[in-house]
Amino acid sequence: MGTVVVDVMPKQEILDPQGQAVVGALRRLGQSRFSDVRQGKRFTLQVEGEVTEEVLAAAREAAETLLSNPVIEDVVSVRELVEGEVASS
């Protein structure tokens, strides 16, 4: 069984209110070394069998059409889960 990881981030120029809230909270907690925070989202897609090029291509299509909103978000990576990495809890 293989797993594909898709990472989606808000476009660089777009306001990220969640990230702003987090950076504000960090400052209030005394963590002032972090000057900015941007918050994205990660999807893990499981497949029966190996993660082939074909599977990755299908995952890229899913990422562009459903998992991200191309108007305000970028798909920053679509890749196979590496061994030892945790897919989900």
Partner: peptide, 15 residues
């Protein structure tokens, strides 16, 4: 700089 700027805005109602 980034070549294509987005035409949409994202708001923050709490702000």
């Amino acid at each position: 700089g980034p070549t294509k700027r987005p035409a949409v805005q994202v708001g923050d109602p709490f702000a």
